[in-house]
């Protein structure tokens, strides 16, 4: 007999179909991101500008302005979507977001240092500061989690993450309240936005995101075993510590890279995994790609919407995601019972 998994809509072919649908949706968002903005372009013009660039305005707009933010949107959306699913899986806490492990707070503090102490002014200059801050903070969090007597359990990880984040953001605030000049630069970074970044930024963080995605893929089966409880996972021959280390490393790389590139874009990593879980259920081998693709779509759509509402000015991606994504999330919470992990 052929044993196909489970509830209607969750058979392997249907899941593949769902995955295909999400790829198309993300592709559509990419197209919108190229076509819409202060100046709307026909898809044919976009295609021409990409394939055979000429000296027209359309080429300049597409290649100089929209290509970097679109590529960044794809990278960041993928990273945050997958990282969100990983962190919720590892902490078994449905309100965990990728910033929980101290990544956002660490990156923020490092950027404040960059602005306040090293007088770095361009967004491009913050990348390595932010990335280093994110890594140091999350290593610290994992160290505290692992150092506590129960080891890196969901609860110790989450609490350590909250605590380290709180500490770091108090350092950040103390720089901000004593130096208005730093606040003046920092308040634009902290919102999180795809705009004003060079294409180099995308290529700089891409390898880290790729490494993070690879680790996440390796981590998926282990996370499935872990979700049955640590004892069952051990019984199934899964090393709990190895799985946690791989998972935390993946979250660190993905979120750190995304934050370094675009500032903290928070909410995506929180609500996208819930949506993905509704579509495909609790199997992380499917949940991670679903979540990543939904992340791409959400980030790009938010960015496009931000360009359209206040034309010719724009609203930052992070704000749009909060203001548009949250009502959608609330609607979802009211309509269906979200799965408690």
């Amino acid at each position: 007999m052929t044993l196909t998994t489970d509830t209607p809509g969750r058979t392997v072919p249907k899941r593949l179909l769902g995955l295909l649908g999400l790829v198309l949706l993300a592709a559509f968002a990419v197209l919108l991101s190229f076509a819409l903005g202060a100046q709307d372009l026909h898809p044919a013009d976009v295609w021409r500008a990409l394939v055979s660039p000429d000296g027209t305005d359309a080429t300049a707009v597409v290649r100089e302005l929209r290509a970097p933010r679109t590529v960044l949107g794809v990278i960041v959306g993928l990273a945050l979507g997958v990282a969100g699913a990983l962190i919720q899986g590892h902490t078994r806490n449905p309100i965990a977001d990728p910033g929980l492990l101290g990544v956002s707070a660490g990156a923020s503090f490092a950027v404040v240092l960059a602005i306040g102490v090293f007088s770095v002014e361009a967004f491009g200059g913050y990348i390595w500061f932010a990335f280093a801050g994110a890594l140091i903070a999350s290593v610290l969090v994992f160290g505290v989690g692992a150092g506590s007597r129960d080891g890196p359990t969901p609860v110790t990880l989450a609490l350590a993450g909250m605590a380290v984040s709180a500490l770091l953001s108090s350092f950040t605030s103390s720089m901000l309240v004593t130096s208005p000049e730093t606040l003046n630069v920092f308040r634009f970074w902290i919102i999180g936005s795809l705009s004003g970044r060079e294409i180099e930024t995308a290529w700089q963080v891409a390898p880290f995101v790729a490494a993070g995605l690879l680790l996440a893929a390796v981590n998926a089966p282990a996370l499935n075993a872990l979700s049955l409880g640590e004892d069952v996972a051990r019984g199934l021959g899964q090393s709990v510590v190895a799985a946690r280390v791989a998972g935390v490393a993946a979250i660190m790389l993905l979120t750190g890279a995304a934050t370094a590139a675009c500032g903290p874009i928070g909410f995506v990593g929180l609500f996208v995994p819930h949506l993905a879980r509704l579509l495909t259920g609790p199997d992380h081998r499917w949940l991670l790609p679903f979540s990543g693709l939904l992340g791409v779509t959400a980030v790009l759509l938010a960015d496009v919407a931000g360009r359209l509402v206040a034309r010719p000015a724009e609203i930052q991606t992070g704000i749009v995601l909060a203001v548009a994504g949250a009502p959608f999330f609330i609607w979802l919470v009211r309509r269906v019972r979200l799965v408690q992990l």
């Binding site: 044993l3 998994t5 489970d6 509830t7 969750r10 078994r92 089966p221 499935n224 075993a225 979700s227 049955l228 409880g229 004892d231 069952v232 051990r234 019984g235 199934l236 021959g237 899964q238 879980r277 259920g281 609790p282 199997d283 799965v339 408690q340 992990l341």
Partner: peptide, 27 residues
């Protein structure tokens, strides 16, 4: 194989999904 006392499955996991996870060490 070890089955601990009163294990808990994540919400929404189906029986087939659960049993399939028993194959973890062979995959």
């Amino acid at each position: 194989g070890v089955l601990p006392q009163s294990p808990t499955a994540p919400e929404g996991l189906t029986v087939a999904d659960l049993v399939m996870r028993g194959r973890h060490p062979h995959q």
